[in-house]
Amino acid sequence: MGLTSKLGELGIVTVKLEDTVNWARTRAMWPMLFGLACCAIEMMSTQASVYDVSRFGMELMRPSPRQSDLMIVAGRVTRKMAPVLRQLYDQMPDPKWVLSMGDCASCGGVFNNYAIVQGVDEIVPVDVYIAGCPPRPEQLIHGIMTLHERVKQERLEDWV
């Protein structure tokens, strides 16, 4: 967070509004508890003891889209699931971000057939793609960090 100046002993810190808001957003970005397939198991590994994504302010997975900021599309999205996924995305309050986790969500992966949506970006706007089948938890964390960097770049004019 860019501290622009410290005002002596008044206990007041002046910062840019953008930086403060972006800092707050990256420090408590609650993901939606929404697993689709194999990647969801790696997402659970990321949540669990060894990788512990709560280091990044994500210890709470919210099962309700109304309480979540980040949608991690973890797994293959079928044509039957696609409308549900879009509805979940629409129910999330702004600001919201989407992480496309794994090859299937990003581009269909090995399943180029009638059943699978060839990339979840056909139905929701994706911020960060994570490659891998399934991606390792480190990769998911890297994706989350990349998203954080992106959020920190956001400027006031982007919001209004």
Partner: peptide, 23 residues
């Protein structure tokens, strides 16, 4: 059911025997 129907069985018909182990 069917929210995760991936068409794996059908996809395997278009892959060689050893290729479809990944499926």
């Amino acid at each position: 059911v069917g929210y995760l129907h991936t068409g794996i069985e059908k996809n395997m018909e278009s892959k060689r025997y050893e290729q479809s182990i990944v499926m």
